[in-house]
Simulated assay, not measured.
Amino acid sequence: MDLDLIQLAVPTLAKGLWLTAVLTLAAVAIGFNLGLALAVMRLSKNRFVSGFAKGYSTVFRGTPLLVQLFLFYYGLGQIAFVRDNPVLWWVIGDGVHCAVMALALNTAAYTSEILRGGLLSIPGGLVEAAQACGMSRLLCFRRITFPLAIRQALPAYGNELVLVVKGTSLASTITVLEITGHAKRLMSQTYAILEVFAIAGMLYLLINLVLITLVRLLEASLTRYVPR
């Protein structure tokens, strides 16, 4: 690989590194909370509430993220009500905002299924014991159900975090200059397709290695009392 190309490509692609991190953190923060709400809704005895959560999960997990991005960015922008509403246009009219929304809504669907599995894995006896001690449902959820569910769901959720990082590369299709967006621009200038995207891939790998390490450290901390 040409040294001059490396000196040109690395600083250029690094410009998109911070935006990739911002997209990931914002999407995960929104998507986790929304996914938790959907997971609780799925376990509701109310058919309408559980049916809505199930339908949401089915739609967003059953359609490609790229299609969702295009529908939000190009499709909703054609609706007069969206264009005339300042709040909606603030979300849809900006590529970064739209990418965060699409990534968050997408990961929320997968997160809801992961957390639902974690919640279902909690033994019913623990919840009954907490209620017998006088704990309210909210206090029981905060102190017992949720921490245990997170411990069970963390390995699978770690994989979802990696998928979110890789999913940010699709934001380049709606004019967002994250790592892949800068790579496409640099490729059109240098025509060094292999070299440019090899460096871009290494940056994504670096981000994911850091994420995986953090998830494993958190998992080790949460399971430090569990016999190996």
Rank of each mutant, 00 (worst) to 15 (best):
N85L: 02
L222D: 07
P155E: 03
K166V: 05
L13T: 07
T175S: 15
F141V: 01
L154P: 14
A53G: 05
N33K: 09
A183K: 11
L34N: 06
F72S: 01
S121K: 08
L13Q: 08
G201A: 08
T107V: 11
R185L: 14
L88E: 03
T145M: 12
Q152W: 13
I114P: 15
L154H: 08
K45E: 14
R142F: 08
A153L: 02
Y74H: 10
E195F: 02
L205C: 09
F60T: 00
C133F: 10
V215D: 04
V10Q: 05
L154N: 08
S44V: 00
S50Q: 03
A102C: 03
T24D: 11
A99H: 10
S172K: 01
M135G: 11
L88I: 00
R151G: 14
Y74S: 04
L69C: 01
G117Q: 09
L71D: 01
V210Q: 04
L186Y: 02
R224Q: 08
S169N: 11
S50N: 05
A220E: 05
L34H: 08
G158D: 10
R83H: 04
P86Q: 00
I144H: 12
Q7C: 14
A104G: 12
V210Y: 04
C133L: 15
A99S: 09
K184N: 13
R61S: 05
R61Y: 05
Q78C: 06
I122V: 15
K45G: 15
M1C: 14
S188M: 09
A29P: 13
F81M: 08
P123T: 01
L76P: 09
V196P: 14
Q152N: 15
R228F: 07
N85G: 03
L103F: 00
N159F: 03
A108V: 02
A14W: 10
G201N: 04
F70S: 02
L5I: 05
R42Y: 11
C98T: 00
I179M: 12
K45D: 15
F52V: 03
L66N: 07
V164Q: 12
A37P: 06
K15L: 06
L25M: 11
L203T: 04
V226I: 07
M1S: 13
L23Q: 04
